[in-house]
Structure formats: structure tokens, C-alpha cells
Design a protein around this nucleic acid. Structure first.
Lengths: 344, 344
DNA sequence: ATGAAAGCGCTAACAA
DNA sequence: TTGTTAGCGCTTTCAT
């Protein structure tokens, strides 16, 4: 098999014009059956493939989506990306992925690099840094450039676009309430993502339940970190209080670390302490005991975001108003919580 | 901000020719300072960005790499991909990623979709199915089409290209020997990837040690699965033998599941049983006790593969012979193994 | 039924 | 210093 062959070359070899070749390859009615056959056979024999750049240049669409992911090592995002890939493939779209590693600058650079005809639209989850700095110009400018954007999971009201999110407050509320229904009397809270809006929302849901049901609420019971640094130390400190009989962790690392510490302290899960987590990544299923957790349906988030984007790409012209797609969550019961107890 | 503006439009507005604009934007010495200034300022004001498709069409290179990943939910591959992304970005390359989900057909389709000018080269890890069927034509054909390919982790001698791998036999040998040095007398083996060549190599390393040191070797001590199905059941069966005092697991899921089962059986890790794993993904650090394991340096594998590919892309012409890049492994000691004991 | 020519956005050789 | 032209690979309109 030789190198890439072009229409022009086929034309020359067969002694016809390029337009004839083009039409023949598209099976146009204008071309004689015989010529078509000749062209098609030769093209096949030479393993001809139309140059996609030339096509894209002409159509002004690349069938490619730019995807920004904060951190691919986080299994939640891996699941979302998996969902995105699945849906994109289904519609014949390619993915250019970029892992921002929570960096604002990487976001800016990536958008700069791709918003020049390389991609048709963006799928993005805001980085921690961006959220912290509240600088969204790079995303806001996309609207003027007529490049559709769909934000997923971590979003901002400052950016006008379609969004796919879960209800963090409500989900955290349900998780905490779940522990309460198990007769937990002293429920702690652990988070390493308090720097994120989603983290704050989850804290809000937690507090809301305690307040509503008049459970004793103490600042001491909340570990609110913005990174994984010092997580273990903080947990060890928290667990000095041995009346804690329930823990709501807002991210997987917190859950796994809490279980490690509890094991080391000889406190039994779930007999002494019930634990409920959030996200349902790979860890949840595999730590021991396996973790009862709030499932976020990562793949679903990815699929829906992709569908929204493609819809907009293929229905240019009739600009529909932006919408927010709320994905439900569910609690997956595993072995880190006691059996369900109906409250007296 | 308005829509995308082209050189042609700039030329029209400023009353000059397109080539003048092009040269001015490139700061050519041919153009008068004044004209350059006018053009550059106007371009900036209009947020002009050169259309990357047009450029690529001209240069015949897209600065884009196609990446095939068997399964992004596997943290080992996530780490590799992270390394790839990092290195690619450093050199100004974009990534089109595709998750094959271990499917042969998905590989074929992706290559078909991208090998038409969309990408400059491929980075790929063979899918389980492909390896099983031993059908490599889709990769082999790339050589004829002059599209460079670098295979990482799961490779085949039937494919002529650069490769980045670890020494699986040797690494498994070292891991097993490590247990032996801890005075383990009855070492079991668990794998859910025996369908893969890498899985078989690891089994080979395990057997090699036992043989060399005359430890009793029994088929019964080996759980050799090709998927995660029935993993737990097999482990439960294996552990009926309570003389087992060491386990070498070849993938993370096996390790996590083994620990869960051991916990349930009340057998203590590492006091009763020492466990060593492979891969050092997210699970290893977070299960309890944290797992002693063979670290594969996933990021490194990704980085090196990317560097090899880019090197080849940028030095077309002088075709260097293909090479194999062997990445070292190391044992990370955590708490699933007893303290090191010098053998008598 | 076939071909010539323009154009997608840009660069570069050549002309003026 | 600036402009004209051809060409990257392809499609499409408009001749012929």
C-alpha cells in the first residue's frame, strides 16, 4: 500500500477531470455507470480516503468537540468522559481532550488553541482555580465567537450557556438524612473539596438536615478542606470524639481515608460508625467494607452534555434558549452503613 | 465580539491585498512598519485568529495525535493518558482520544476515521479482543500509509513500530520474591487479566520464582481469570486453604477483592497473609491496609511514548529503525506486607 | 456525461 | 513595499 492518494491523482491516471472523479465517488447520477465503476474501483484499489481537512475547510465544521476535564485521575471525571466519548462516537463526532489539572491558565490556553476552526464546540467543567478566581472571560467570549459551550458538573451563573448538573444540596440532604434514619446521633462531615461550589452545596445540605431535625450541630464535627493535604491528620483529630457514630464524606478520598483511620483505631464500620460517601467512583466499590454512597451517574452527565451540544451544533440558526439539565442521583446501599432502621 | 474574521476581510476593509495582510501578520520585513501596524491592530481589535484547518491543509500536518486507550476507567490507563497529555501539550500537540473499551471493531473504526489527514500519528494500546483474535491488519496498514505509530503497554511482535513497555516477567518475579523474602511459605496468585499477554507474563514470573526456590507449587494456588466475573467466588474458594500466607495479585481489582474477602474471613493483613499487588493505581493507596505494590510509572510510559512519536513526526525523512523503550518498575512498600525479613 | 472554474482560508513564489 | 497568482484537497455551479 502506498502513500495517500488524492482525487487529482486519480483523475490524472484515469484521464478524466477532478470533478468527474469527485462526482463518481459520490455516485452521482450525472456520471456514466462505466466511469463510476472505473473510478470507484481504482479508488478502492489505491485505498483512497478523502482528506478530512479539505472537507472541513469547505463545510466549516469539523465534527470535533473540545473537552475540558479538570483531572482525569478522578474516577468521577473518567466516567463522565467515558459517557461523552460514547455519545460523541454514536453521532460521528471526534473528541479533542484536554486535562486542565485544575489550572486556569491551561483552560485559557486550550480554548485559545482550539477556538480557531479546530473544533465545533466545547464541553467543559470549570477548574478549581477558575472557580476560585471567578474569572470567566475565556468562556464568556465563546458566545461572541459563536462557538457553543456546554458546562457540566462545575458551572457558574456568570457564564451563559447550556449546563448539566446534579442537585448537590438535595443529594447531600438525602445522604445525611439516610444516616439519621439509621439512628445516628452524632454525624460528622468530611470534605476535601470545600474550595468548590459543589463542595459548599454539599455542606449546605448536610447542615440543613441537622438543623431541621434539631440534631446537635458543632463546627468541630466538620472537616472542611480545600485539598487532600492534612486530610488524615484532620480525620484523626475528628475521630478523637468517640461519640461520632455517622460520617458523611463528600468525596471518595475522604471516605477511603476515614475508613483506614477507623480501622486503625479499631472502630468497626458499620457497627460503631456508619459511613456514607459521594460520587461512587472506583474506590467506593472496592474499599472494605464497600461504601454506601450517593451515585452521581457520571456517564449520564457526560452523555447528556454531549447530546445537548450536538443538538445545538446541528440546529444552528434557530437558537434555542439555554437550559439546565438536572441529573438525578441515587443512594447505593453497600456495607458501610447499618441496615435500614425506621425512625421511631 | 463578532464572528470569525478572515484575512480576506481584513484586506478588504484596509484596502490592501491578502498577501500583504498575511505578511504583515507574520511581521515580514517586506511590509512597511506603518502597514504592519494598521493590519496588526485591526486584526487584534477584531480578534482575528488564523484558521487552523487552512494551515494544516497547507502544511500537511495537524499537530494532532490520535490516542487509543482500552479503558479510561482503569486508573493505570488514566495515568498513562495523563502523561501523554502532559508531554503532547509541552510540544504543542493536540490529542484526539478514543476509548476502545477493549473492542477490536472500535479500533478499526477509529483508525479508519482518523487516518485521513486528521492526525499526524497514533499512540495505541492494543485491546483485549484484538490481542485475542491476533488480527493486526488495521495497525499494520499504517506503516504503508506512512502514519507513525507507537504502541504502549500491550504490544505485539506482529506489528512493526516503536514500543514502550515494562518487563512484566521480571517485575512479577521481583514481587513474588519479595513475599518469599518475608518468609511466606505458600504464595498464591490471582489474576483477572490472564487473557492478556501482560497477564501471562506476570504468571510466568511468579512460577519462575517458585520453581527456582523449590517452593511447593500447585495449580490450585493460581486464580487465572480473563475477566472480573466470578472473581470473588474464586477468591473465596482459594482462601479455603488457610495455609496461604502470601498473595501476589496481578491487577488492582484482584487485590481489593482479596482484601475484602480476607477481612470478612477475619484473616489479618499483613499478620496472617501478606499481599502484594501490581500497577499502583488509585485503589492501592486507599484500600485498607494500603497495598504494597509494583509501581508501573504510568505517566512515564505515556510521556516516553509521546516523545518517541513526536520525534519521529518531526524527523520524517531520516527514518530511524524502530525501537523498544523499556520502563523500569519499582516496589512500593505499604502496609499489606509484613516488615522485611532477611532470609535465613 | 464530462469538464472548467471558483472558492473554503491561508501561504509563498514571483511580479510589479 | 505591495499585489497577483497558484496551490493545499475537495465540492459545486455552470458550461459544454
Amino acid at each position: 500500500m502506498n502513500k495517500r492518494i488524492t482525487i487529482k491523482e486519480i483523475a490524472k491516471v484515469l484521464g478524466v477531470s477532478v470533478s468527474t472523479v469527485s462526482k463518481a465517488l459520490h455516485d452521482s447520477y450525472e456520471i456514466s455507470t462505466e466511469t463510476k465503476k472505473r473510478v470507484q474501483e481504482y479508488a478502492k484499489a489505491q485505498n483512497y480516503k478523502p482528506n478530512s481537512l479539505a472537507l472541513s475547510l469547505q463545510n466549516k465544521r469539523t465534527k470535533t468537540i473540545g473537552v475540558l476535564v479538570p483531572n482525569i485521575l478522578n474516577t468521577f471525571f473518567a466516567r463522565v468522559l467515558n459517557g461523552i466519548e460514547c455519545e460523541a462516537t454514536k453521532h460521528g463526532y471526534k473528541l479533542i481532550t484536554c486535562f486542565t489539572n485544575e489550572s486556569y491558565q491551561k483552560e485559557v490556553d486550550t480554548i485559545e488553541m482550539l477556538a480557531n476552526g479546530t473544533i465545533d464546540g466545547f464541553l467543559a467543567c470549570l477548574s478549581q482555580e477558575t472557580l476560585k478566581m471567578e474569572k470567566f472571560d475565556h468562556f464568556q467570549e465563546l458566545e461572541g465567537q459563536d462557538i457553543p459551550l456546554v458546562l457540566y458538573d462545575r458551572v457558574s451563573s456568570k457564564i451563559n450557556c447550556d449546563k448539566v448538573v446534579i442537585d448537590n444540596v438535595k443529594s447531600a440532604y438525602k445522604a445525611t438524612k439516610y444516616l439519621m434514619n439509621l439512628n445516628c446521633k452524632n454525624i460528622a462531615f468530611i470534605s476535601t473539596i470545600h474550595g468548590l461550589n459543589v463542595g459548599k452545596f454539599r455542606a449546605k445540605g448536610y447542615k440543613k438536615v441537622l438543623k431541621k431535625y434539631n440534631q446537635n450541630f458543632s463546627k468541630k464535627n466538620m472537616v472542611k478542606l480545600e485539598s487532600k493535604e492534612n486530610l488524615r491528620k484532620n480525620i484523626e483529630k475528628l475521630l478523637k470524639d468517640d461519640t461520632i457514630d455517622g460520617i458523611f464524606t463528600v468525596d471518595e478520598t475522604s471516605a477511603a481515608t476515614a475508613i483506614q483511620v477507623l480501622n486503625e483505631l479499631g472502630r468497626k464500620v458499620p457497627e460503631d460508625v456508619s459511613l456514607i460517601g459521594f460520587t461512587n467512583g472506583i474506590l467506593s466499590k472496592h474499599i472494605s467494607p464497600p461504601l454506601t454512597t450517593v451515585n452521581q451517574f457520571g456517564e449520564k452527565i457526560g452523555e447528556n452534555a454531549t447530546r445537548m451540544l450536538i443538538e445545538r451544533l446541528e440546529n444552528k440558526g434557530e437558537a434555542a434558549p439555554y437550559s439546565v439539565n438536572l441529573i438525578r442521583t441515587e443512594i447505593i446501599e453497600r456495607k458501610s452503613t447499618r441496615r435500614y432502621v425506621v425512625k421511631a
